[in-house]
Design a protein around this nucleic acid. Structure first.
Lengths: 247, 247
DNA sequence: AGATGGATATAACGCAAGTTATTAAGAATC
DNA sequence: GATTCTTAATAACTTGCGTTATATCCATCT
């Protein structure tokens, strides 16, 4: 069988080579693909948590609302990502999830995960690795939000997105599409929309980032990485080979 | 057999009742307890990651150093916690870990985890739940750091620690010991030590928190929770019963 | 008791980023 | 093509927190 079109299998294959049986199991997770419009919610904070989603196409983000009306975006999901892993231990959603663009998602219930645990140690390990990696992403974002200036936050985030995109679309040079408004960027970076605009102007002034609507161009990766103290090892390096030792 | 003295078994039992066989497996993770002094490092950023630790007694924290000399503390570990879960997917440590007080830790290699996956679906599920919970903690801290004022950050963090402590030591009223210096608190909350001091003064002024050295007193939980927009559901509520359905 | 060093408190000053307001520029709808 | 809506740029003003400096407290050692 050929599963090349399956995002999730491509994703898992990053971590470890899969047997045919494992591929079949994974493929079952991608049944019932559902189209979903830009701006639509997969779920809201407080909803009952009974399932995960795999994101097949489109971008999405998770967020939390604060009492003062602010919103914090927690993570941005790209095609191939699993959404809702975090809530495996909970029966309530801790964060809402919304589509950034039109896309396609596949739902599967928490219970299916327990079956996976029983059926394949390999897939269990990969799931654990994915969960680890997501924690690493969160950790990096935490440092970014806690300790860096607006310039650095922007530089860091833009490079993070660039690297993540290039992992699934290796071709494409120094330009890429980032379908986020400045307001959304502000909610991601813990800044005000006004200051995001100011910061883009400043970065453009210094030839570090050029933005035209949703098109971004990074003329000098090195320079921007230095600006944002960006080290991509938490994204790419050092995925453990150990996993391939699993039978 | 009686495993009452095992932190990790008490910890796992929070999530799901364990069979004798599972308890035996867990108990094997707590071999070779090692004493370790306050201030000592379990490991540093960049070290090879080959093992986890369970923390049996004492407090610890993980941290990252920034280029400008700042340090960000990522999480605080209490007795019963597993340290280093995050790095399961990596071969390098992404963060250092240091002891806050004298304590005892037990080491076990990553490979042991793979055996657990094979031997017990229940333990696998609980490990996954623990990893989820840790992500929930990180997420909450991320929001705290990104969007709240110094007062709110302090209020929120102090209540988080209070609730976590009371989960393992239910008796003890409104006072507790928090063995963290103001400098460490600053590194946790993304503030300067000076401002931590100021904020303690301000909170004391308003009778929200009283601090004497490492002893803390919270006269009015409600008031402090309101101040910090603290909702403990991400810590306690809604641990999923589903896990008990696993055989 | 006196000396030394680490943790904490308080004050004075500066700056990065928030807030509010105004204007401009693209999309989208009619 | 005119109108409305959304997104973005720029300016003027305000503020929370960082920074630097100095003073005080407590613990430990001699």
């Amino acid at each position: 069988m050929d599963y090349k079109d399956s995002c999730i299998i491509r994703h898992f294959n990053h971590y470890c080579s899969l047997s045919e049986a494992d591929k079949r199991l994974l493929n079952d997770l991608e049944q019932s693909p559902t189209e979903i419009k830009a701006g639509a919610q997969l779920w809201e904070e407080g909803d009952r948590a009974t399932e995960f989603c795999t994101l097949r196409t489109g971008w999405a983000y998770s967020y939390r609302h604060l009492e003062n009306g602010n919103r914090q975006i927690l993570e941005v999901y790209l095609p191939g990502d699993i959404i809702g892993l975090r809530e495996f231990a909970f029966c309530q959603r801790l964060a809402g999830v919304q589509m950034i663009e039109d896309g396609v998602v596949c739902h599967f219930p928490h219970a299916r995960m327990l079956e996976l645990f029983r059926q394949s140690t390999t897939l269990t390990s990969v799931l654990f690795a994915i969960s680890s990696r997501q924690q690493a992403l969160l950790t990096e974002r935490l440092v970014n939000l806690a300790r860096r200036s607006a310039r650095q936050k922007m530089a860091h985030f833009l490079l993070e997105m660039y690297v993540r995109l290039r992992q699934t679309e290796p071709d494409g040079g120094a330009a890429f599409r980032l379908p986020l408004s400045q307001e959304q960027l502000a909610d991601i970076l813990g800044l005000s929309p006004v200051h995001v605009s100011r910061t883009f102007s400043a970065l453009g002034e210094d030839d570090l980032v050029h933005r035209d609507r949703h098109q971004l161009l990074i003329p000098d990766m090195e320079a921007l990485a230095h600006e944002g103290e960006f080290d991509q090892c938490y994204l790419t390096d050092s995925l453990r080979p150990l996993l391939d030792e699993v039978g």
